[in-house]
Amino acid sequence: MRSNVIKGHQGIGTGVKDATYVEAARWGKYRGWRYVLGLVVILVAQLIVGTFASALVAIAISGQEGLAAYTQQDFSAIGSVGGFLVSMAGFPFFLAGILIAVSLIHRRYPRTLITARERIRWSRIGHGFVAWFVPLGLVEGLGQYLFYPDSFSFTANLATFALFVPLALILTALQTTTEELFFRGYIVQGASTIWANRIFLALVSTVAFTVPHLLNPEAIAGGWLTIFLYYFVGGGLVLAVVSLVDGTTELAIGAHFANNIFGFLVVNAVGTVVTTPALFTVSQYYATFHALSMLVIVPIFLAIAYKVFKRDKASELVSQNNQIGRR
C-alpha cells in the first residue's frame, strides 16, 4: 500500500512522493552501523534476556522440575498452559529490543515498521486475519477432520479452555506482531539500505524467518517439504511479498495472528512446538498434510485479500518530523 508523504529533511518540505514502509527506513538515522547495533540490541533482548525470562517463568510455575522441562523443551511436566506461558515469556523483551532500536538508535517512530502513513489501518490487519483464517479453517480444520477423523478429539475441559482464551489472544497477538515487526519490518528495512530490489528483500526476510524455525518439531518431523512449503513459502515468502506489494506490514500482521491463534485455540496437534488446551486436538502431527495444505491456503488467501477486500487507495500526509536526514 502506498501513501503520499512529504519528502525531505526536517523543516525542508519539498516535493510529494509515494512512500512505502520500506522507504521509511531512510527517515531517521540509518547508517549501516546503526542497523548492526540495532540487531545486536534486539538479539540480546530476545536470546539472552528473553531466554532468562522464560527460565524464570518455568521455575515460578514448577521449580526445578519446570526448569528441567524448559531446558529439555518438554512441557508435559508443567502442563499445556504452563508450557504456553514459558514459550511466550521472552516476547515482551524481544518487542522491547525492537522498540529501543527503532526509537533510540534510528530515531524514528516504531509505527514506520508497519506503515508510512500517519495511522495504522486496523481494517487492513483485519482483512489479513480473515483472508488467512478462512482457508486455514477449511483446509487444516475441516480438511484434516475429513482425512483423519479418528485423530480428532473435542476438549474435555471447557472451563480450562475458557480461561485460556483471553490469555492466548493477548500473548499470541504480542508474539506474532513482534515477529512481523522484526522479520517483515526491521530486517526488510535494514536490507533495503543495501539493495532495494523487491526480490532481494523478500528472500532476505524469508530466509531470516525460516532459519529460527528449523528446530521446531514440525520442521524436524516434516523435513525439507515442511521447511520449504510451510515455513519458507507459506510462513515467509508469501507474507514478505504481500508486505512489499502493499507497502505496509498490516496484511501480514493479521495473517500471522490468524495462523497462530487457529493453532493455539481452535485445532492444536500433539507434536507441535506448543501444545495448548485448544477446542480440538489432533493426536498426531501430519507433516505432509500441513505442508501441502499451503498449496491451497495461499491462493485462497491472496484471492480474499485482493479480490474480496479491496486495497484502500486513499493516502495521508506524513509529518516531516518523521524524516530526518542521514547522520
Rank of each mutant, 00 (worst) to 15 (best):
M1E: 13
V5D: 00
K7V: 14
G11E: 15
W27D: 03
Y30R: 07
L37F: 07
V40N: 12
V40K: 03
S54L: 11
V57S: 06
V57G: 02
A58H: 04
A58S: 05
I61W: 08
E65M: 12
Y70V: 07
S76N: 13
A77Y: 12
I78S: 01
L85R: 08
F94G: 01
I98Y: 00
L104Q: 12
T112W: 03
T115K: 08
R117S: 04
R121P: 02
W122V: 13
W132F: 10
F133D: 05
F133Q: 03
F133Y: 05
V134E: 05
P135C: 10
G137F: 00
V139R: 04
E140R: 06
F161L: 09
F164K: 00
L169I: 15
T172R: 01
T172V: 14
L174K: 00
T176K: 02
T177A: 04
Y186R: 00
I194D: 02
A196M: 12
R198E: 14
I199T: 09
A202S: 10
S205C: 03
F209W: 05
T210P: 01
A219Q: 08
A219D: 06
A221D: 15
A221N: 11
V238W: 03
S243G: 14
H256W: 10
N260D: 15
I261R: 01
I261P: 00
G263H: 05
F264Y: 15
V270P: 03
G271T: 15
T276A: 04
P277R: 03
A278G: 02
A278R: 01
T281V: 13
V282G: 01
Q284H: 15
Y285K: 09
A291D: 08
L292I: 10
L302S: 04
A303M: 13
I304N: 07
Y306F: 14
K307W: 11
V308M: 10
Q320V: 08
N322P: 03
Q323N: 09
G325C: 08
